[in-house]
Design a protein around this nucleic acid. Structure first.
Lengths: 360, 360
DNA sequence: AATTACTGTGGAACCGGTTCCAACGGATGC
DNA sequence: GCATCCGTTGGAACCGGTTCCACAGTAATT
């Protein structure tokens, strides 16, 4: 492009809009003044500002984002990284929604990236997503999906501020090992047990694959709640599959085979719960008449099944929003904030629980 | 920051990495040469290139993306816009997955944005998402979710290359009115009708709210297929609600009230289909023994319900990938490609259909 | 030996903003 | 009347890349 070419030439040659210099020239002021008006900084007389605004309108001027980013050495971009998930399931869709909603409120945009690596394998060869590795690409990252804690630390060490979704962290020994946001299973779980107990249930069993950390955490919360209410925790473990539907089916089979008295099932999540209900139905057992079922997550499918599922609500959007808030605090005050943040859960009562049948 | 400050000062003061000038100085070459090496351009001797690579390694240099973007006037960023959807449901999650997978293959990153506007109201006051309006922010946009065709045209007129998801376009009178990617309902629908007919069904009714354009398109495909097989199309319209679950329930009620002979229901989508199955079950009718049901979309819930749902598969990932491919072609060859592209559908047979009961 | 051709290479100019400093003009104070 | 101060303002320098032109060597040609 020819040096010093004027606006007309530039626009004709490439699809390039007017620049701040064109505005300045038309308004008869300096570049600095236009910049001040654009960013609402003080120190410009109303008269001059009006001239500038007029020129901006006349040219249809829009600031070039890249140039601003270069000059300010920041991008106003947040990266949402979904790790080791085949795609965005309902849960993370809602987390993303919370993140998006907070980000758009504070004028930041969202980059979406996937990240895959062996969660159990050799972590030494794991490379961060390109967008994170490129310096200056994004101001920070939210690590959602399932991550190994060492990979979160690795991203941090790259100098990119980041916040992780806590409950799916692998290898994390204590809450605040990395900056993270968690949902607390306890409040909702306690409510669920109290509710079942108040209906008269005594034999409430937990069904899941507790080799998966999130189920393990739920199970611990369940156990504590049971003990608090003077009840004996009991587990139906299906630890050799990660297919939630299969976990539900096999749990029912195992339960019926064992013949142990059971009046209610607390499922590790909603998919397991729905699968449990269907497996029970196939064996002629009706929910909640013959047995009560409680799910975990409060996903949309709770109201799409019959009976509608009583479930522990996880505030997914709030979780996402909290991740975003935390990250943006970290970005604007590096080193000033850190630790773990927690959002609460609560029970949503629907139709899948009833008083236990009078034992024959 | 002081002018001409050296690397050490810059890194100490702000968290700023080494720049291309630092690499050039260390390697004893010019900036241009370093740039040539970085971008793998010819015209650099192997000896010099080696020196440069050594210096890059020594400093741990990473190029600054923003600077590159400014100089090249492109961002390598694609925007995925989800319009008028409360969040990413399964369908669009999979479309997004297809987009992501194609983009990451060709080295582009993905920005995620939501866009809300009244689809029927006053379109004059609709403002495009900030990220699109900002010149230079993204190279192009994929408009997913439900869009009004005038809004797609408005984005185009801003000079931002874009491709829209076709099937949810409002106000679109012919396929190639804007650059778009569609799934073709016909092949899968014909397969479904042929399959039902081959089982012996003659009275197959379509259930949906056909005031919604996507259902209207499905209905048209259904009607054509029915006629082709010498059968009479019949509609159960529930046009006064957009709640899919309610559509299913009310359709069943209407069907039973009418008393018209019906041996199979072709639902507008899977959510409607599942709702139909449940509503039938509540009235003591079992699928597929008493009546057959076919869904549309082939969503995950097809295998999470009982019986597993036979459904017309929409290749959502392929659709997303095609959007991305189309857009990137538009970006690299402006004005050279345009029109509508189509991906096909096909039937996936599961458990929800059987030969019709011998009429009593 | 002089001319031509070609390969490498340095570096100035440029992308389009932000930031900061010097300077200007008018009002105020003495 | 002169010094001081403050609100405005222009513009140079800068952010960190890319691009392109000019030019130095060296090899090939005449």
């Amino acid at each position: 492009m020819p040096a010093g070419s004027d606006l007309f030439l530039r626009m004709a040659w490439q699809r390039m809009g007017p620049s701040i210099a064109d505005v300045a020239k038309l308004a008869g002021v300096g570049k600095g003044t236009v910049s001040r008006v654009l960013n609402g900084r003080p120190g410009v007389s109303e008269q001059t500002a009006a001239k500038v605004r007029q020129a901006i309108r006349q040219l249809g001027y829009t600031p070039n984002v890249q140039a601003r980013r270069l000059a300010q050495n920041k991008s106003d971009l947040i990266c949402f990284v979904l790790s080791n998930r085949d795609f965005l399931h309902e849960f993370h869709s809602l987390v993303l929604k919370g993140v998006e909603s907070y980000c758009s409120k504070v004028g930041r945009d969202l980059v979406f990236a996937l990240w895959r690596y062996p969660l159990d394998g050799n972590l030494a060869s794991v490379v961060p997503p390109r967008i994170i590795a490129n310096r200056g690409s994004v101001d920070g990252a939210i690590l959602a999906g399932a991550n190994h804690i060492e990979c979160v630390k690795a991203i941090s060490k790259l100098g990119v501020p980041c916040v992780a979704f806590g409950n799916n962290l692998i290898g994390c020994t204590y809450l605040s090992e990395v900056d993270s946001v968690w949902y607390d299973e306890q409040p909702g779980t306690r409510e669920a047990i109290r509710y079942l107990a108040s209906l008269g249930h005594r034999h409430i069993r937990f069904a899941a694959n507790i080799s998966l950390p999130w189920f393990a955490r739920n199970y611990r919360a369940y156990s504590e709640a049971m003990l608090d209410f003077g009840l004996a925790p009991a587990l139906i473990a299906v630890n050799d599959t990660t297919d939630y539907v299969e976990i539900g089916e096999r749990a029912v089979q195992e339960l019926l085979d064992s013949g142990e008295p059971t009046t209610a099932i607390f499922a590790g999540n909603d998919v397991v719960a729905v699968s449990v209900i269907r497996a029970l139905a196939r064996r002629g057992l009706k929910v909640p008449r013959d047995i009560s079922v409680v799910g975990f997550d409060d996903s949309p499918r709770c109201i799409e099944c019959d009976p509608k599922l009583t479930s522990v609500h996880v505030p997914k959007e709030a979780l996402g929003a909290e991740c975003a808030r935390f990250l943006i605090e970290k970005i604007s005050a590096p080193g000033r904030v850190s630790g773990a943040r927690v959002v609460s859960t609560h029970l949503v009562v629907r139709e899948s629980c009833a008083p236990p049948r009078q034992t024959s």
